[in-house]
Computed example of a mutant assay.
Amino acid sequence: MGVLTKLTLKEINCLIKDTRVSFNAIKETSTGISDTTYIGTSKSKKYVFKLYEDSSVKDIENQIKILKAIKSLNVPNVLSKKINLYNNRPITLFSYIEGDVIKSITKNHLKQITLFLASLHSIKEIEVSKNDVYSKQNFEKMLYSLSDSKIREEIKQKYQKVKDIDLKANALIHGDLFPDNVKFIDKKLSGVYDFTQSCFGNINFDIAVVVISWCFKDYRFNKSFYELILNTYNKYSKLQIKKESFKEYLLYACLYYSLQRVYKNTKKDYAEYLKKFQIIDEMI
């Protein structure tokens, strides 16, 4: 989450009037690279207002459908009665999830988020209309459209290692489950949010995203965290992760998020996941 489009309190209240919620105050969020997110307060109750910078109305309709289908899990409620537009970009109002984004990750945190994914992947009673945004086809489309030839060739060279990866879709996935999309209260998972890119995709990729974002501190890879995630998932999920072939999913996830950062014009941190690619390639 973050703020890319500055909005006033009056503008936001006008956009959410169909929800019968009116904010007394708004606060900008500070993290995220994709959308504009404000925390609004009404009579001491908090809400999340989101303006989608790149997503279509169809994408948001898909996200709402998913959130309603998985409401038994720790996810936000959709409060908007309809999808309103601001300069042709969709907006949505959500319930606020109490808790804190963790600063120091523990095995307890990892176990809980892995169990959440095992539950998410088990949900079958939903038809997702959104295409798999994490597919090789989408990856290659982003890669070959890069204008920076140096970065394009750098990523392309590494991609040769995983270009034959099997990304067959087999479950509903989150796909973007970084630590800043999760909250905890007293070491207990209180909620998971930002399902904008959720789709019917590959579970290995979904787990790999957690590994590359939760198992590193700076550039030190915690292999015991990695083992805990895989063992917990395989213990509690009917779907299974094959450890012997999982490395390529970790490498692909690193490349995907490095490429996405370049594609979204945030070149300053694209190298982070290329460094992680190299570390994982050497350690696993």
Rank of each mutant, 00 (worst) to 15 (best):
Y236E: 15
Q157P: 03
D186K: 14
N138S: 14
C199L: 09
Y219N: 14
K243P: 01
I280E: 07
T41K: 15
I33A: 12
I102W: 02
K276P: 03
L67R: 00
V210T: 15
T36L: 00
I151R: 08
W214Q: 05
N202L: 03
N13C: 11
Q160S: 14
C254N: 14
L177D: 07
S258H: 03
I60Q: 01
F205I: 07
T196K: 00
V162K: 03
I113H: 07
K235V: 08
V209G: 09
A118L: 04
K130G: 05
N234R: 09
S129Y: 11
Y144I: 07
M283E: 13
K27W: 05
V57Q: 01
K187V: 00
N202P: 11
C254G: 09
E282F: 11
S135C: 14
S245T: 15
P179M: 04
K81Y: 05
C215P: 04
K187E: 12
F195Q: 01
V128N: 00
C199D: 02
N222K: 08
I207V: 06
A171G: 12
D35S: 11
I229M: 08
S149G: 09
N231T: 12
F216Q: 06
V192Q: 06
N170W: 08
V162A: 01
K156W: 11
K45A: 06
V101N: 11
C215Q: 03
E244H: 13
G191K: 01
N88R: 08
I123K: 09
L189F: 08
I26K: 07
F94Q: 00
V3N: 07
I83E: 02
D132I: 13
I16D: 00
G99W: 07
K264D: 15
S22I: 13
W214Y: 06
Y144L: 06
K243T: 12
K243R: 15
D59H: 14
V209D: 02
K268L: 09
L251T: 05
K223F: 13
N84M: 08
I173F: 00
M142R: 14
Q63A: 12
I165K: 03
V182Q: 09
K238T: 15
S190N: 11
I123Y: 08
T36H: 00
M1S: 15
V101H: 11
S104I: 12
W214V: 00
V3L: 10
V101I: 14
N138W: 11
L7C: 01
D18W: 08
Q157G: 01
P90W: 06
I123S: 02
I105W: 02
K247L: 14
A169Y: 07
A253V: 03
I60N: 01
Y193V: 07
L146S: 11
N24V: 09
N202H: 11
K161Y: 13
Y249W: 03
D186P: 10
K156Q: 14
K46A: 05
Q278D: 07
Y273F: 13
L110Y: 07
E272L: 15
N87F: 13
A69D: 06
D180K: 09
K275N: 13
T114F: 05
N138M: 14
K217N: 14
V21L: 12
Y226E: 04
D148E: 07
P179V: 03
S22F: 15
F94K: 01
F221T: 10
E61I: 09
T41I: 14
S80N: 10
T8D: 04
V209N: 03
I123C: 10
K168L: 12
L239W: 03
K275D: 10
G32Q: 07
A271S: 12
